[in-house]
Design a protein around this nucleic acid. Structure first.
Lengths: 216, 216
DNA sequence: GGACATATACATACCATTGGTATGTATAAT
DNA sequence: ATTATACATACCAATGGTATGTATATGTCC
């Protein structure tokens, strides 16, 4: 293959192929050769032209995944017509409505068996999602009285961590009933702060996704 | 080196050396050669006689770490003179009093940069610590009325996860004040269930450990 | 707009290191 | 004396990474 007029396409191809392989087979168990084999003629030279290491590919992959929802999240975050509490709840509703989620759930094995990927994901959530999307909304909620806490930053951290990690069937496999129990417990926990991130409806939706991952 | 009369010593040496290297430099960044170099004359043959893979060494390492507290934990778990709530709180107190902790804190960098190690650790906590130590105590607490919840298993999971992962300065670096805030928030969260795993005293102690890890 | 120079987008060839294995050997146990 | 164990030694393919080569796109000057 000779050089591409639009190198961004090549870069994106590498990211897409790597995303699939990293998610399905794990980061460690995916070799550069595996990636090359799915690149349709491109070679290692192409990869190392666009990325300086295998880890940098992973960084790009996780970034790409997390950036998918950004425009919507920004819109919700800055929607002054809603209270902080309402914005937070809408964020959770939207991220669970994302139709792509379904495919992801179907092919991804336990992320605890994909530790490097999981670590990068958690780092991204902690350093990006929490400060840029959750904290502002929680603080808005505190200001408008819809959320009650003395520790808005820490509460943001906690909510994101519980919902995105602890309650994540991709990380901890569990039966549907266990997932529902966890979700209800989470609701109980957050009730004193005025927050209910997971409505009955959302719990049902989550349970549906989860069915793909369930161990029978 | 010729064969050892007490092969268990050799096995333990490999575990000890690997523990140090895995914790200080990370699992991925520690090569078998690194381990061999610290074995004082033993070679790869010794390693592969006692362990069938590098990952099995990690498994042994994490198991060894987690098994350190077992006798005490069993004693607390089965101490009928205490309520469930009291037993749970004592477990946390004891595990934070463990003097070894201090050394660990001093040399271990962020565990999120040691993802395979962290994953094994979390798996061990979820599959061992929670069902064998936390769940029985929480259930005892529900039975004796000292703890109130409809979801004892899920609450056990949650408590262990929050205190051992979310609040762990080895996993998430944070300032001392942030750690204190997180701990107080955790107390607020668990208050409706009748639980206070971290007393003011314990928070102070935790903060002390944390000083070693703190980013200045 | 055509010619030339440069920068870019790859391909190719090569490398040390890695985790792992097959086999050999000396010593402890029986 | 025989066997089983606890190692040592020698070897392997595959891995992530690099150095270098080459063709094409792009910018520039006239």
């Amino acid at each position: 293959m000779s050089r591409n007029k639009y190198p961004e396409e090549t870069r994106q191809l590498i990211i897409d192929v790597s995303t699939k392989l990293f998610m399905e087979n794990g980061y460690e168990k995916t070799s550069l050769q595996d990636i090359i084999n799915h690149l349709g003629g491109l070679t290692k030279g192409a990869i190392y032209h666009h990325f300086k290491s295998k880890e940098e590919i992973l960084y790009a992959v996780v970034t790409h995944i997390c950036n998918g929802n950004i425009p919507i999240m920004v819109a919700i975050r800055d929607d002054k017509s809603l209270t902080g509490k309402e914005r937070l709840e809408k964020m959770f509703a939207v991220s669970l409505q994302n139709p792509k989620q379904k495919d992801v759930f179907a092919v991804t094995p336990n992320l605890l068996d994909n530790p490097t990927f999981l670590s990068y994901y958690i780092k991204m959530v902690v350093s990006d999602t929490v400060p840029y999307y959750i904290v502002p909304v929680i603080k808005a909620g505190v200001a408008d009285g819809s959320i009650k806490t003395e520790y808005p930053e820490e509460l943001s951290d906690l909510i994101m961590f519980l919902s995105d990690v602890w309650l994540n069937p991709l990380i901890f496999q569990m039966s549907t009933e266990q997932l529902v129990k966890k979700a209800k417990l989470l609701n109980q926990l957050l009730h004193p702060f005025g927050i209910q991130v997971l409505s009955e409806d959302l719990i049902m939706r989550l349970a549906q996704f989860q069915t793909f991952t369930e161990i029978k």
